[in-house]
Design a protein around this nucleic acid. Structure first.
Lengths: 246, 246
DNA sequence: CAGTGGTCTAGACCACTGC
DNA sequence: CAGTGGTCTAGACCACTGA
């Protein structure tokens, strides 16, 4: 595999920003895997011929962006956000011990299908582009609590159709990285409230017409291109979201 | 008025943190009003006998905390968050021109009343403490769109009962500052979905039993003590919340 | 033009980690 | 103990603001 070199940096940008972009680019290229340390500040200062203070400022930005994590005395490590946990900021499902529990994922279907207009528009695909649909439920103690409909560009995610379900496993984003070499860097989520359709009612075990919270997620890769469009639905009764403002 | 001096700083803390706390404390004491500039970095460095880099780091933290705002070439300014706008992150009400519009506030009642248990607990008040209740609606083009129930400790907010409605005006938090010298520093909000009660239905012009989004807000002063407990209800159909994750 | 915050450097010392 | 990130200093120059 030919490793692409860094894009031409904009010389008008401050040095620490250029350095940040350079490191971010290497993280995006998977030069260091998730959890691995990046070079020490002193090394980066030496290889890039800048003062260590400039390196620290660049890393400050990377920490703020959520791309790396510092650990005093140990190093600075590549961080991959846990998007699969993000739904539990919205839905509270407590286990028998009263603690938050991570539900199991179960893929009900996966097939190459023509995506609806919203999905195509979100993924910036033209009308002819092929897409993959995954239908998935999240199950807690045998009870389905969330239903998910996921649309992916077929071109980049073809391996998902041929892999075995056990190869894909419970967590999708690690599977994307493992099987398709696609890494999710960030996502936009939009919450709305809707009425349970007949399908929702059957799947989630709630009354038809009762309120459901819909989470629409558009996930982006490090290159900024949209990778995945996902609709998650859960009973509004389970919805509880806490936010700090200032 | 006797201005309290700074609390004894913890000498184990880094210099820039102690400086941050010192400045934050002065902001909390209203030494500089909202929108006013704090001293320049060079001045702060001189008066506190520290390097300017240390001052910059302290201000970095204050910026991250949302207490001040930098403007290159002009100065660093005290910032008061616009909590009254925060509800519009949750509810989208578009005007005839398709733009987001700020609705009018209308106080329906204000009286000294005994608060319900949740409100007392949130405000950390004992059973005998007096409280003030405000009932308020937010109106857009003559149509009520949000209903608000607000509970305040009577001890700190007594002037609200005697002031005229025009003295209070449309925005509550500036009124708290003007009339009661209470400044809201941060708040915690919890979102849930409920069914419209008969009162909701009448007030908001929706069907009884249709879904409403409930925003529970607990606002804190700079001293960390809870100041205000507020319940806002709006039609779930108007709810739309967008969030970025990474 | 003077004054502000923004960038960058260079180097000292500290606190924490893991061998 | 060596190596890491964390704190702190001191000073130079740049870019932007407003009179």
């Amino acid at each position: 595999m030919i490793v692409s070199s860094s894009p031409q940096p904009d010389l008008r940008l401050p040095l620490y920003q250029r350095l940040r972009d350079e490191i971010a680019h290497q993280i995006a290229r998977n030069v260091w895997r998730s959890g691995e340390p990046i070079p020490t500040e002193a090394e980066l200062a030496a290889t890039h011929r800048v003062a260590i203070g400039t390196v620290r400022k660049a890393i400050d930005v990377l920490v703020a962006d959520g791309l790396v994590e510092r650990q005093q005395g140990r190093g600075t490590f590549v961080r991959r956000p846990r998007f699969d946990r993000s739904l539990f900021r919205f839905f509270r499902h407590l286990g028998p011990d009263g603690n938050q529990v991570v539900p199991e994922g179960r893929i009900l279907s996966r097939e190459a299908r023509t995506a609806p207009g919203v999905a195509r528009a979100a993924l910036a695909l033209d009308a002819h582009a092929e897409t993959i649909q995954l239908v998935r439920i999240r199950v807690l103690q045998g009870r389905p609590i969330l239903s998910e409909e996921i649309w992916l560009p077929a071109e980049r995610f073809a391996p998902l159709l041929t892999a075995s379900l056990s190869e894909i496993g419970d967590l999708l984003y690690p599977a994307y990285e493992r099987l398709c070499n696609e890494i999710v860097a960030r996502a936009e989520e939009t919450l709305t409230v809707a009425s349970a359709t007949a399908a929702d009612a059957e799947c989630l075990g709630i009354a038809e017409g009762s309120p459901v919270v819909v989470v629409e997620r558009l996930a982006f890769g490090f290159d900024g291109r949209p990778i995945e469009w996902r609709l998650t639905r859960g009973a509004a009764a389970d919805f509880r979201y806490r936010i700090d403002i200032r």
